[in-house]
Each structure stands twice: as C-alpha cells, then as structure tokens.
C-alpha cells in the first residue's frame, strides 16, 4: 500500500532530513515511526501527503508516485488520508460539529449523509454531547479526540498522526492510543510518528525507527 524506496530529503539550506530510506507498509498495518527529535519522523509523514517532495527516491501510495504528483492532483490524493496533528490544527471560529464536517464539505458530500457521519464520528470519540460547543472550550485531550474525529469522518484508508499524544497526560494519551487501535482494527492503516514509550508498550505495533535521517530498524515488512 505504501512504499518508500531509497528516499532522501534534503531541505534548502543543506539539512539532510532523510537519507536513503526504504520500507513498505501493507494495508491494515499499525506502524509507529520512532526516533529522537530531528530524526526525520515529521519529514517522513510530510512526504506521504506531498507537503514536501523527496529530493531523490520515490514514495508510492496506493500505486501513485506521490513525489511526482501534479499540483492539481494533490488535494484528491490527500483525501485518502486522515491527518492528526500534535497541535490539533482545529478551526476555532466554528463549532465542534463544523470542524468535523469540514473534510466532508471539501469532498462535496451531500448534507444529510454528512450530518449522520459527523455525529457517528463524534460519538466514536465520545464528544457527541459537545457538538454545538466551540473547540476552545474543550480540554487538550478532548481537542485531540476532536482532531481524531475530523481525521476519520470521511473514512480514509490511512490514518497519519504526528505526535498525537505529544501534549497530553498519560491517561489522555492512552485514550488516543485506544482510538487508534480501534480504527486499525476495522482495517484502517495507521502510521503514527511518536516517541511516547507508554503508547508503544500498550499497542505493541510494528516499529520503524529512524536515526539522523537513516533507517535504523523495522524496514522489512
């Protein structure tokens, strides 16, 4: 489903973020990408959704070479991902419901079906009672769960999370971990960049480990 072959990424200015990284991930896998800060975890995720393009090598997702996608094709490719960010990236000028409805609006989903799906997603993360609230009134853990709801509402094939528990206490972090596990159990491929050891121990996923931009272990599927 996803394969990196000999991928290198050098940023303008000379910083070498990734160095000849190759691995592949099958559909339905739960994979953690770990490593010290600056090891290249975020860059790896950015390459997957074409926020950055590889300097060399190829990133293939669902048979598409993401690094060579045209500008116009990028938005449609991104819709097969659900994205969870460490800083949530919620929109604070609209309600909880509207935040979750955003990916459906973007995909042009008709209204009534969309409302049903939004409520299902909110129910799944335990925020249904807050649907009319504004995100700013939610706690950090709730905001992260809201971000999860937004990531899965359009039923993406792949869930990408960048340090999803980075700002959370252990209890909240484990809640997020359980959510990730439950999505993975219904067939969603999940790729999580983290250095949260508790989460690692709890979920026991396959681990791809990076060190100074190079693959340290976990390359073979």
């Amino acid at each position: 489903m996803i394969s990196f072959s000999h991928v290198s990424k050098r940023y303008p200015g000379g910083h070498q973020a990734l160095q000849d990284v190759s691995f592949s991930i099958n559909a339905g896998e739960l994979v953690f990408v770990t490593g010290h800060s600056g090891a290249g975890k975020s860059t790896l995720l950015k390459l997957l959704v074409a926020i950055e393009r590889p300097t060399s090598g190829s990133v293939i997702v669902n048979g598409q070479n993401v690094g060579a996608l045209g500008r116009r094709a990028v938005p449609f490719m991104r819709r097969s991902f659900g994205l969870v960010f460490q800083d949530h990236k919620l929109l604070f000028d609209r309600s909880v419901f509207d935040n979750v409805a955003l990916p459906l609006q973007i995909a042009g989903f008709p209204g009534r079906d969309a409302a049903r799906r939004v409520r299902a997603a909110l129910d799944k993360v335990g925020l249904l009672k807050y649907e009319t609230a504004m995100p700013i009134t939610l706690s950090g853990g709730e905001q992260q769960r809201l971000c999860m709801a937004r990531a899965i509402v359009h039923r993406p094939a792949i869930l990408l999370a960048d340090e999803p528990t980075g700002n959370l206490d252990t209890d909240y972090a484990l809640e997020i971990g359980e959510l990730i596990r439950s999505f993975n159990q219904v067939g969603v491929t999940a790729i999580i960049a983290t250095h949260d050891q508790t989460l690692l121990a709890r979920l026991a996923p396959r681990v791809i480990s990076l060190k100074h931009g190079a693959l340290e272990s976990g390359g073979a599927a």
């Binding site: 116009r72 938005p75 991104r78 990236k89 929109l91 990916p103 973007i106 995909a107």
Partner: peptide, 16 residues
C-alpha cells in the same frame, strides 16, 4: 492563513 493551511492539508482544492 492558518485556516487555509489546514483545509489544504485536509484535501481542499484551490477552487474550494
């Protein structure tokens, strides 16, 4: 700007 960045990440086309 922030909002635009976010919805771009979620897969919004330029037209949207």
């Amino acid at each position: 700007r922030e909002e635009i960045e976010v919805i771009k990440l979620i897969g919004a086309t330029d037209a949207f």
